[in-house]
Amino acid sequence: MKSVFHTEGITKVYDTGEVQVFALRGVDLDIYAGEMTVLLGASGSGKSTLLNILGGLDRATEGRAYFKELELTAMKERKLTVYRRDHVGFVFQFYNLVPSLTARENVALVTEISPNPMRPEEALAMVGLEKRIDHFPAELSGGEQQRVAIARAIAKRPEVLLCDEPTGALDSKTGVKVLEALTRINQELGTSTVVITHNAAIQNMAHRVIFFADGRITDVKVNDTRLLPHEIEW
């Protein structure tokens, strides 16, 4: 299988002056095309730091990270912006929608700067929000807001979708709906999806689960059978 992400000895050290905090201690990892991967670990285990480096938001102290043939760790800020713009879809824990834009406009925000986007209406239909298209974020529930955020992330047809605790702020029932949307996109569009969570229940819907602790990968598990989102409970 082809890798979309490949890392070699990624280390991240936060130097606070008095103490050095190791967030990542030499992580080697491959994420494959079309795969749904769950990064699982307690908070502070380094999974978010890795996601930030893969997403081009943060820099590694040591080691190399590649997106296909692009070496992310060698790219300047300007190039990283273009990389995020053209290849990556982000989903945040707290949705990060623009409150002054409607659902459709929040999606259009991204499609307007993408080379090959889908129509905002189409993206919203994929997450089941075709009826809420002209609502402002304040008029939507948390689950709906997160689905708008997913529609916004996938509307540019990104090769990878990076989700940081996408259900972290939601109850289980709404969380399931969000996971359904992610699964559907992974299946229908073949988008490689990385979900980080500390919610162990979610691991069962992934192709592969990567366990993090203390800045290292402690285990990798391949699910032979995957659960559908509505079969998951927490």
């Binding site: 995020r84 713009r85 990060n96 623009v98 916004r152």
Partner: peptide, 15 residues
Amino acid sequence: RELASLRILGFTRSE
């Protein structure tokens, strides 16, 4: 927060 989110989504500094 809004502007930083846009930067993450791939908006350039000047945008």
